[in-house]
Nucleic acid binder design. Structure first.
Lengths: 142, 142
DNA sequence: TAAACAAAGGTCAAACAAAGTCAATGGTGG
DNA sequence: CCACCATTGACTTTGTTTGACCTTTGTTTA
């Protein structure tokens, strides 16, 4: 059961995240690769297979001097966002049922609500959700 | 975070602006460069990458004796103009022209883009604007 | 007053410093 | 034995730092 390199890197990153204050860490790809004595793209591979949205992670990065990779674990705050989303989703559903919007409109609105604010800090994502509801209310004159 | 020289200069300038009465400051390029012990064009680089219109800033300058660089942060009135003329609106138009979206969809998307983020700080409203573009690109598979 | 000088800021390209991509290859568990 | 995950490395893209040279503006001097 000798775990693969990728598995060990995965574990390592997860420990770092667990130890972090806010479920978020920043690493240097090349440095981590050095730690595990492998090529940098191995790290990219790990991120791409084990730290995806599906697994509950979000990664951002920057190239060039002082580049980094930031890995964020969706935490309870984020779940709050999703919860909040459900409120919004319910509202969209309502608009649809009342035939104020089409299925296509409902779909794009949902998608935008979920994705447009992704690069914002969590607390602003919450505000944004409210903003979506308010804006929709206004637009369709409840 | 805020590791590179450029990042630190950016932070410094932002603090100065935050402390200013009117969201506007004047600096001397050479002096600031001296403060950070770097070459003056480094400051120019920072201004050119982090204090552009896209980021919600406007810069003017003057050469020669008593030269200066003035950096102004857009206020909310200006922001409306900025958003209204944004890349996003052009993109929505494009989607419509290519018949990927209907007039109704274009309208609600525009409305959401302008209003959903209203309670956010200006810099995040701009980020949100970009988020809308990214999300739309993804949804309609560019 | 025109010419020279000094004092700013601007431009641009080269060198450097990351991270990303992709396709070929390797290895392993079922 | 073969499908599929893992590993590697050459190449690409993006971002930063530096310096040599340019332009504009204000000041001094012949």
């Amino acid at each position: 059961m000798a775990r693969s390199l990728a598995d060990r890197i995965e574990q390592y990153i997860k420990v770092l995240i667990a130890r972090s204050e806010n479920g978020q860490i920043e690493i240097q790809r090349a440095e981590l690769a050095e730690t595990f004595d492998c090529v940098p793209s191995q790290v990219t591979y790990v991120l791409g297979t084990r730290f995806t949205q599906r697994e509950g992670y979000y990664t951002e990065s920057r190239r060039g001097g002082c580049g980094y990779v930031r890995i964020t674990e969706y935490n309870s705050e984020y779940l709050a966002v999703l919860l909040d989303n459900s409120e919004l989703f319910r509202f969209i559903r309502e608009l649809y049922d009342k035939q104020k919007i089409s299925e296509g409109e409902a779909e794009i609105i949902r998608f935008l609500a979920l994705n447009a604010g992704k690069s914002l800090p969590i607390e602003y994502q919450l505000k944004l959700n409210e903003g979506f509801i308010k804006a929709l209310e206004q637009f369709y004159e409840k």
